[in-house]
Design a protein around this nucleic acid. Structure first.
Lengths: 202, 202
DNA sequence: TAAACTAGTAATAGATTACTCACTTTTTGG
DNA sequence: CCAAAAAGTGAGTAATCTATTACTAGTTTA
């Protein structure tokens, strides 16, 4: 092949589309991303997108699928190496923060999808993702209680909600400051408070 | 006056407009609220809105102003009655949760405004609100440290971020479950973890 | 090499959006 | 009580958004 092949195979275009959406979501309100903006970012005309996806929702669906795979794979890998439930929780948190710092638009997209009325497919995928994620956390928290790493009266469901809220709070803080780097910088101190809230009395 | 007076004075219409937006925000994605939907909710035609507001952003601005006044007034009042910084924090949290439970759309609106690119006036008002709010919290947290109600190594800024994240997490949870009542129900357990995270060693 | 397939363009349809304006109805003050 | 001001109507406009379609140019395949 000699140089610029304008035509790419379908699966590569689909992957590039997802990437374009994730990138755009970092720069603007995710719910304001238009098919024109996506195509422009990819160097295509708007109509070309609909060769690979039947609807815009199908694009969002592909993005959610991408997020679920990548995030869960990284989280699972991080938890694997840990020697205790508590260490696993901390590793997951760090991994999640890294993921969010790399793709600032993603948590905002998820939150945005959840706000849509009705039962759209992308929304259902977010619900599935958080259910899976919450289940992982719940197991670790239960295990931590069994080992007395966590305090005995800990409400596990509440701890799951606060774990996610911790990240959500950091995202909001970075929006307020207009500074994405804040997420990584402030994460340790915020997690320290969370940890103190769930661990066994010292 | 014998019954249905169709024309209302301007200030009452402005107040009714804000109320309509807040109500609508509870039912749908705040960033998808149209001027048509607002007018319909008020029993007016869409054009009538622009007798009282020059632009849609001016409406949002009025909503943000309403939120700031109401929320800060309630928060201040709640803190007044408290006998200690820690008690004040808990009272503020409870009050904030009550406010959010009554107006589920509000926190989602604020978050949505923060995501808009550029420096819109409504966005700046949200930033001002959270700055004021954060300042109140910071003072209380510092006072709590001085009294040794909170542990001495506590990172106050992180505690502020997590305080807001706690509420944000509860909002997200209610979206996931599609059940607004969850916020009130789950709030105490979540706050208990937060409290344990910031208080002096037992 | 001809036929079929794949990936793209450019134009445009159809819906929705915020906003405007000429005109009508209601309220109000001298 | 009546004229002016305030409030509301309803039709329309320009812009924008998703999706469709007729058509073109490369690439496989038979």
């Amino acid at each position: 092949m000699s140089g610029h092949s304008r035509h790419l195979p379908a699966d590569e275009r689909r992957a590039a589309t997802v990437e374009a959406v994730v990138d755009l979501a970092a720069e603007q309100n995710p719910s304001d991303i238009t098919t024109t903006a996506i195509a422009q970012r990819m160097g295509l005309t708007q109509g070309a997108l609909f060769r690979h996806f039947p609807t815009k929702d199908a694009i969002l669906q592909a993005v959610m699928s991408w997020v679920t795979e990548r995030l869960m794979a990284r989280v699972d890998k991080a938890a694997e190496g840990a020697t205790s439930p508590l260490a696993a929780l901390e590793a997951i948190f760090k991994t999640h923060i890294d993921f969010v710092a790399e793709h600032t638009g993603v948590p905002r997209m998820l939150f945005g999808e959840l706000q849509r009325p009705g039962e759209t497919l992308p929304k259902q995928m977010v619900q599935t993702l958080t259910r899976q994620y919450g289940e992982r956390l719940r197991r670790l928290l239960e295990a931590g209680k069994a080992r007395s790493e966590l305090h005995s009266e800990l409400d596990v469901d509440a701890a799951v909600v606060l774990f996610i809220g911790t990240i959500q709070g950091l995202v909001m803080q970075s929006l307020l400051a207009g500074d994405v780097a804040r997420i990584r910088r402030d994460a340790p101190a915020v997690f320290a408070i969370y940890l103190r809230g769930i661990t066994h009395t010292r």
